[in-house]
Lab assay of single mutants.
Amino acid sequence: MAMNGTITTWFKDKGFGFIKDENGDNRYFHVIKVANPDLIKKDAAVTFEPTTNNKGLSAYAVKVVPL
């Protein structure tokens, strides 16, 4: 089920960042999981599918909501 969130941290040079989800949890995401990576920036609103990996909470099918 899709969730909403906000990008809180973005490491462009490393290709990953973190999203604060609607429950207040931080989720890892990688640029290859983003549909529109050219719009990635700190504080951008996103929708995504929540999941977990071996390191904890993460996100896939991430879409940055255009302003």
Score class of each variant (00 low, 15 high):
residue 1 M to R: 13
residue 1 M to H: 13
residue 1 M to L: 12
residue 1 M to V: 13
residue 1 M to Y: 11
residue 2 A to W: 11
residue 2 A to C: 13
residue 2 A to R: 15
residue 2 A to Q: 14
residue 3 M to E: 03
residue 3 M to V: 06
residue 3 M to S: 05
residue 3 M to W: 07
residue 3 M to H: 06
residue 3 M to G: 04
residue 3 M to T: 05
residue 3 M to R: 07
residue 3 M to C: 07
residue 3 M to D: 02
residue 3 M to N: 04
residue 3 M to L: 13
residue 4 N to E: 08
residue 4 N to K: 14
residue 4 N to Y: 11
residue 4 N to S: 11
residue 4 N to C: 13
residue 4 N to H: 14
residue 4 N to Q: 12
residue 4 N to F: 11
residue 4 N to D: 06
residue 4 N to P: 05
residue 5 G to C: 03
residue 5 G to Y: 02
residue 5 G to F: 02
residue 5 G to S: 01
residue 5 G to D: 00
residue 5 G to M: 02
residue 5 G to Q: 01
residue 6 T to H: 11
residue 6 T to I: 14
residue 6 T to S: 06
residue 6 T to P: 00
residue 6 T to R: 13
residue 6 T to A: 05
residue 7 I to D: 00
residue 7 I to E: 01
residue 7 I to L: 02
residue 7 I to C: 03
residue 7 I to P: 00
residue 7 I to K: 00
residue 7 I to Q: 00
residue 7 I to W: 02
residue 7 I to T: 01
residue 8 T to M: 10
residue 8 T to K: 10
residue 8 T to Q: 09
residue 8 T to E: 10
residue 8 T to L: 09
residue 8 T to A: 08
residue 9 T to I: 14
residue 9 T to R: 13
residue 9 T to P: 01
residue 9 T to K: 14
residue 9 T to E: 11
residue 9 T to Q: 15
residue 10 W to P: 01
residue 10 W to Q: 01
residue 10 W to K: 01
residue 10 W to A: 02
residue 11 F to C: 09
residue 11 F to W: 08
residue 11 F to T: 03
residue 11 F to A: 03
residue 11 F to V: 06
residue 11 F to E: 05
residue 11 F to Y: 12
residue 11 F to K: 05
residue 12 K to Y: 08
residue 12 K to T: 07
residue 12 K to L: 07
residue 12 K to C: 10
residue 12 K to G: 09
residue 12 K to A: 12
residue 13 D to G: 08
residue 13 D to K: 11
residue 13 D to C: 11
residue 13 D to S: 12
residue 13 D to W: 09
residue 13 D to Y: 10
residue 13 D to R: 09
residue 14 K to S: 08
residue 14 K to L: 12
residue 14 K to T: 05
residue 14 K to W: 11
residue 14 K to H: 08
residue 14 K to P: 06
residue 14 K to V: 06
residue 14 K to I: 06
residue 15 G to L: 07
residue 15 G to V: 03
residue 15 G to N: 07
residue 15 G to C: 08
residue 15 G to I: 02
residue 15 G to P: 01
residue 15 G to M: 07
residue 15 G to T: 03
residue 15 G to S: 07
residue 15 G to E: 05
residue 16 F to T: 03
residue 16 F to H: 04
residue 16 F to C: 05
residue 16 F to A: 03
residue 16 F to R: 02
residue 16 F to M: 04
residue 17 G to K: 02
residue 17 G to C: 02
residue 17 G to R: 02
residue 17 G to W: 02
residue 17 G to I: 03
residue 18 F to E: 02
residue 18 F to Q: 03
residue 18 F to R: 03
residue 18 F to D: 00
residue 18 F to Y: 09
residue 18 F to V: 07
residue 19 I to K: 00
residue 19 I to Q: 00
residue 19 I to L: 08
residue 19 I to G: 00
residue 19 I to T: 00
residue 20 K to L: 14
residue 20 K to M: 12
residue 20 K to R: 13
residue 20 K to Y: 10
residue 20 K to E: 07
residue 20 K to F: 11
residue 20 K to G: 04
residue 20 K to S: 07
residue 20 K to I: 09
residue 21 D to Y: 02
residue 21 D to G: 04
residue 21 D to Q: 02
residue 21 D to K: 00
residue 21 D to R: 00
residue 21 D to W: 02
residue 21 D to C: 03
residue 22 E to Y: 06
residue 22 E to R: 06
residue 22 E to F: 06
residue 22 E to I: 07
residue 22 E to K: 06
residue 22 E to M: 08
residue 22 E to T: 09
residue 22 E to H: 06
residue 22 E to P: 04
residue 23 N to V: 07
residue 23 N to T: 05
residue 23 N to W: 08
residue 23 N to K: 11
residue 24 G to V: 01
residue 24 G to A: 04
residue 24 G to Q: 05
residue 24 G to M: 04
residue 24 G to R: 03
residue 25 D to H: 09
residue 25 D to V: 07
residue 25 D to G: 07
residue 25 D to R: 08
residue 25 D to C: 10
residue 25 D to F: 09
residue 25 D to E: 10
residue 25 D to L: 08
residue 25 D to K: 08
residue 25 D to T: 06
residue 26 N to F: 15
residue 26 N to C: 14
residue 26 N to M: 15
residue 26 N to P: 05
residue 26 N to I: 15
residue 26 N to Y: 15
residue 27 R to V: 06
residue 27 R to S: 02
residue 27 R to Q: 01
residue 27 R to Y: 11
residue 27 R to E: 01
residue 27 R to K: 00
residue 28 Y to S: 05
residue 28 Y to E: 03
residue 28 Y to T: 03
residue 28 Y to K: 03
residue 28 Y to G: 02
residue 28 Y to W: 11
residue 29 F to T: 01
residue 29 F to V: 04
residue 29 F to L: 03
residue 29 F to W: 02
residue 29 F to G: 00
residue 29 F to D: 00
residue 30 H to F: 08
residue 30 H to V: 08
residue 30 H to N: 12
residue 30 H to L: 09
residue 30 H to A: 08
residue 30 H to S: 12
residue 30 H to I: 08
residue 31 V to N: 05
residue 31 V to L: 09
residue 31 V to R: 14
residue 31 V to I: 12
residue 31 V to Y: 11
residue 31 V to A: 08
residue 31 V to D: 05
residue 31 V to H: 08
residue 31 V to C: 10
residue 32 I to W: 12
residue 32 I to P: 05
residue 32 I to D: 15
residue 32 I to Q: 15
residue 32 I to G: 15
residue 33 K to F: 15
residue 33 K to T: 15
residue 33 K to N: 15
residue 33 K to A: 15
residue 33 K to R: 15
residue 33 K to H: 15
residue 34 V to A: 06
residue 34 V to D: 04
residue 34 V to Y: 03
residue 34 V to L: 04
residue 35 A to L: 15
residue 35 A to T: 12
residue 35 A to W: 12
residue 35 A to G: 08
residue 35 A to I: 15
residue 36 N to A: 04
residue 36 N to F: 06
residue 36 N to C: 08
residue 36 N to S: 05
residue 36 N to Q: 06
residue 36 N to E: 06
residue 36 N to V: 04
residue 37 P to W: 05
residue 37 P to N: 04
residue 38 D to W: 15
residue 38 D to M: 11
residue 38 D to F: 08
residue 38 D to G: 12
residue 38 D to T: 11
residue 38 D to Y: 09
residue 38 D to I: 09
residue 39 L to S: 08
residue 39 L to C: 13
residue 39 L to W: 10
residue 39 L to F: 11
residue 39 L to D: 10
residue 40 I to E: 00
residue 40 I to S: 01
residue 40 I to Q: 01
residue 40 I to C: 07
residue 40 I to N: 01
residue 40 I to M: 05
residue 40 I to H: 01
residue 40 I to T: 03
residue 40 I to D: 00
residue 41 K to N: 06
residue 41 K to E: 10
residue 41 K to L: 07
residue 41 K to R: 14
residue 42 K to E: 08
residue 42 K to I: 15
residue 42 K to M: 10
residue 43 D to M: 11
residue 44 A to V: 10
residue 44 A to N: 05
residue 44 A to D: 03
residue 44 A to T: 05
residue 45 A to R: 14
residue 45 A to Q: 12
residue 45 A to I: 10
residue 45 A to F: 13
residue 46 V to F: 00
residue 46 V to Y: 02
residue 46 V to T: 02
residue 46 V to C: 09
residue 46 V to K: 01
residue 47 T to H: 07
residue 47 T to C: 09
residue 47 T to P: 01
residue 47 T to I: 13
residue 47 T to L: 09
residue 47 T to Y: 06
residue 47 T to S: 07
residue 47 T to V: 12
residue 47 T to K: 08
residue 48 F to E: 00
residue 48 F to Q: 00
residue 48 F to G: 00
residue 48 F to T: 00
residue 48 F to M: 02
residue 48 F to N: 01
residue 49 E to M: 15
residue 49 E to T: 15
residue 49 E to D: 06
residue 49 E to N: 14
residue 49 E to R: 13
residue 49 E to P: 01
residue 50 P to F: 03
residue 50 P to D: 02
residue 50 P to Y: 03
residue 50 P to K: 04
residue 51 T to N: 09
residue 51 T to Q: 11
residue 51 T to S: 13
residue 51 T to L: 11
residue 51 T to G: 11
residue 51 T to R: 13
residue 51 T to I: 14
residue 51 T to M: 13
residue 51 T to W: 15
residue 52 T to S: 13
residue 52 T to A: 12
residue 52 T to G: 10
residue 52 T to D: 07
residue 53 N to H: 09
residue 53 N to V: 06
residue 53 N to C: 10
residue 53 N to L: 08
residue 53 N to G: 13
residue 54 N to Q: 13
residue 54 N to A: 14
residue 54 N to P: 12
residue 54 N to V: 12
residue 54 N to T: 12
residue 54 N to H: 14
residue 54 N to W: 12
residue 54 N to S: 14
residue 55 K to W: 15
residue 55 K to T: 08
residue 55 K to P: 03
residue 56 G to S: 06
residue 56 G to C: 09
residue 56 G to N: 06
residue 56 G to M: 10
residue 56 G to Y: 09
residue 56 G to D: 04
residue 56 G to A: 05
residue 56 G to E: 04
residue 56 G to F: 09
residue 57 L to F: 06
residue 57 L to V: 03
residue 57 L to E: 04
residue 57 L to H: 05
residue 57 L to Q: 05
residue 57 L to Y: 06
residue 57 L to I: 05
residue 57 L to K: 09
residue 57 L to P: 07
residue 57 L to C: 05
residue 58 S to I: 08
residue 58 S to L: 09
residue 58 S to A: 14
residue 58 S to V: 10
residue 58 S to N: 05
residue 58 S to G: 11
residue 58 S to W: 06
residue 58 S to F: 08
residue 58 S to H: 06
residue 59 A to L: 04
residue 59 A to R: 01
residue 59 A to Q: 02
residue 59 A to I: 03
residue 59 A to V: 08
residue 60 Y to K: 15
residue 60 Y to M: 14
residue 60 Y to D: 15
residue 60 Y to G: 13
residue 60 Y to W: 10
residue 60 Y to F: 12
residue 60 Y to I: 15
residue 61 A to C: 13
residue 61 A to R: 11
residue 61 A to V: 06
residue 61 A to S: 11
residue 61 A to G: 13
residue 61 A to W: 09
residue 61 A to H: 13
residue 62 V to L: 04
residue 62 V to N: 01
residue 62 V to S: 01
residue 62 V to I: 14
residue 62 V to H: 00
residue 62 V to C: 03
residue 63 K to S: 08
residue 63 K to R: 11
residue 63 K to I: 13
residue 63 K to P: 01
residue 63 K to C: 11
residue 63 K to Y: 13
residue 63 K to D: 05
residue 63 K to H: 13
residue 63 K to A: 08
residue 63 K to F: 12
residue 64 V to P: 03
residue 64 V to D: 01
residue 64 V to S: 02
residue 64 V to H: 01
residue 64 V to T: 03
residue 64 V to Y: 02
residue 64 V to E: 02
residue 65 V to D: 07
residue 65 V to I: 13
residue 65 V to C: 11
residue 65 V to Q: 10
residue 65 V to M: 12
residue 65 V to L: 14
residue 66 P to D: 13
residue 66 P to Y: 10
residue 66 P to K: 11
residue 66 P to W: 09
residue 66 P to S: 13
residue 67 L to M: 13
residue 67 L to R: 13
residue 67 L to K: 12
residue 67 L to V: 13
